[in-house]
Amino acid sequence: MISLRNVSLLAPIINYEQRSLKKNIIKNFELKNKVLLKDISLEIMKGEKIAIIGKNGSGKSTLLKLIGGVYKPTKGKLLMKEDNISLISELSAGISENLTGYDNILLKSIYLDLDLNEKKKQLHKIIKFSGLGENIYKVFKNYSDGMKIRLLLSISLFSLKNILLIDEIIGAGDLKFSKKTIKFLNSNYNKDKTMILASHDINLLKMFCDKGIYMKDGQIKFFGELNLCYKKYLKSESLI
């Protein structure tokens, strides 16, 4: 279970002067904060599949990263009954352009906490799923954009844990690969596993989720049935 109780996240407003030790010694700066998330209360039960919708800058990714442990709440409490979480946001994080695709599997899987022994078995599965074949031994920066996405998404998919937080990336890649990804997630993410998905693509969200969170200005405006949530979103943002 994931439980957020009155969680707020504040980030300092940073300018050049505040980054300078010299200027901090001469002048005592008072750091001002901006609100990224405000008073979020939420309970997500095991096995629930939740969509997060909202326009850019509404706090979708920030909320995912907060649940994923990248950000720590400034106020309030975040309680997790399980710490077995996969956060998949920026695909290229943990990648080195100068290494081969094969080395990048090793590299990214360390960040994604794939066990070394388990990884050896998984390695071939990842290569097979990506469809890169012998190209896996070529330098990553020479891959086409499509090849890069296929490899990065494959690594992420094979490191999934009991709670999955995905930010926008399911539809990445060509149509054929997207279908493959969706099929993989559908067959591997059964009733026991929790999934929270942030996306602008309502059709994609409907494939996986039955509940939705509508976010605006760092606040939850609605949490409930997905179709109703989407209607609230369209209405509130004057999209209909």
Binding site: K65, G68, G69, V70, I85, L87, S89, E90, S92, A93, G94, Y111, L112
Partner: peptide, 9 residues
């Protein structure tokens, strides 16, 4: 930077 912002390590 990218790793700090995307992985809880």
């Amino acid at each position: 930077r990218g790793n700090f912002k995307n992985y809880n390590i």
